[in-house]
Design a protein around this nucleic acid. Structure first.
Lengths: 240, 240
DNA sequence: ACGATTTTGTTCTCACGTTCACAAACTCTT
DNA sequence: AAGAGTTTGTGAACGTGAGAACAAAATCGT
């Protein structure tokens, strides 16, 4: 959504060769990967699109189409080799290399993120925890010690950091973001409840608890109010 | 995405009167709400769609179309009354009433969520913190004490809880989810890295750190590898 | 009172995403 | 070796969402 603008050329041919995997597909690949990992752990060697799809919670046609953007890794009449497909997806996403991330803002959430084990498990290495509050600098959190935010650019340069996680209060987020971008970070995961503005080449994804709850509330309200609320609906319902 | 199936009737007329706000719009309303709150705090009385759109990080045509699903709350030639529109959106989302939530799984993340102030600020009241580990039960976290997961159904019934937040490890999530649904919860926000299966009438939204990072990694990899990787691209580029 | 200006609400078109449905390609049985 | 049975990969139909563009409706200046 907040990602790379599509190609500029009007030329619509060769869409496939260009390796432009649809954004919606990209968002599902990690889910497939997780399903494959689970199957692999249970020593399942082969899985059909139906098996995979139900494990991933999608419909099988969608899964097949998604996979077809990567290449033809299945065998008709058989299915997909679990470990082979797993590797191919991992390679496509870029998980065959390691990624360094910095976490900025070590409050409640920052602490939780810093201790979260799921990071390292998939090739994401936390290079540093940064906070601008001098009182927090030096504090031990998990395996790391909190560094000063002033050291950002050095850390990013020396640690080859390309991903920044913002877990600061909303007020500080844009400023932190700007400095991350200046330091050379080109992907940002934003937990602060703010809209970030960034240059063209930077990707931002946001995770927003409050928004998610509000979306749930909307649907909850609709369920409670008995879907057909308007007089018009009652009319057309009564007319039959 | 994981939300209410669309209406069953084939009747496509009166789409508007039925109050079916598109899912994509629903997801943006909270963002508009936040932008309006910020303007209101700065004592701005009126704002144009352009103003609001840039504050919300969307394009103005999209914003106007989104708002038009709610009704015609603007004035041509003038713009929108900030406080009035704010109230209308809040009402549409269902924020004029309070919502009770339970948080299940008070580990790293659960702690952070429990202490998160942004909950209460928008009418979401944490009714209870639940954990199945007896060692944790009774522990004070923020304003609340951790309750036993066994008390779930009582708490949900007595506290009118309709939203459940799952912050357990992946392995426990589906079981917790089933019990939440049994207890009467009909909206779930899932932080555990698993696909949850739920009955038709239950809404699930997921927040998945690891997936977000992987999506960023994919784009990061593409940026690094020099977008036009395939020979075909070089050819067509060179041809001009 | 009326033309110039601003800004909304909406229509139209295009792009993107999902699902169906089926030929192609494989395995297995006899 | 051939036919029956599976399961993939994809073309085509459909549905949803985004953005450009403009008529309708308001304000403002004279």
């Amino acid at each position: 959504m907040t990602t790379a603008r599509s190609r500029k050329s009007g030329r619509a041919r060769d869409e496939r060769a260009e390796r432009g995997i649809p954004e919606a597909t990209v968002a599902r690949l990690p889910v497939y990967l997780r399903a494959l990992a689970a199957l692999s752990d249970r020593n399942v060697a082969t899985a059909s699109s139906e098996d995979l799809a139900s494990a991933a919670g999608v419909n099988s046609a969608k899964l097949r189409k998604d996979l077809s953007y990567l290449g033809t890794y299945g065998t008709r009449g058989v299915g997909y080799d679990v470990n082979y497909l797993r590797y191919q997806i991992a390679r496509e996403i870029g998980l065959t290399q390691d990624w360094s991330v910095v976490i900025v803002g070590i409050g409640n959430l920052g602490h939780a993120l810093a201790k979260y084990s799921g990071f390292a498990s998939r090739g994401f290495q936390v290079a540093a925890l940064l906070d601008s509050d001098p009182a927090r600098v030096g504090e031990q959190v998990g395996d790391l010690r909190i560094s000063s935010f002033d050291d950002l650019s050095t850390i990013v340069r020396e640690g080859q950091v390309s991903i920044g996680v913002i877990a600061t209060p909303a007020g500080a987020a844009q400023d932190v973001c700007d400095q991350l971008v200046d330091a050379g970070v080109s992907s940002i995961l934003n937990f602060a409840p703010t809209v970030l503005s960034v240059p063209e080449h930077v990707d931002v994804r946001k995770v927003d608890l409050s928004i998610e709850l509000q979306i749930l509330a909307y649907h909850e309200q609709r369920k409670a109010h008995g879907h057909a609320a308007s007089p018009l609906d009652q009319l057309s319902a009564g007319a039959l």
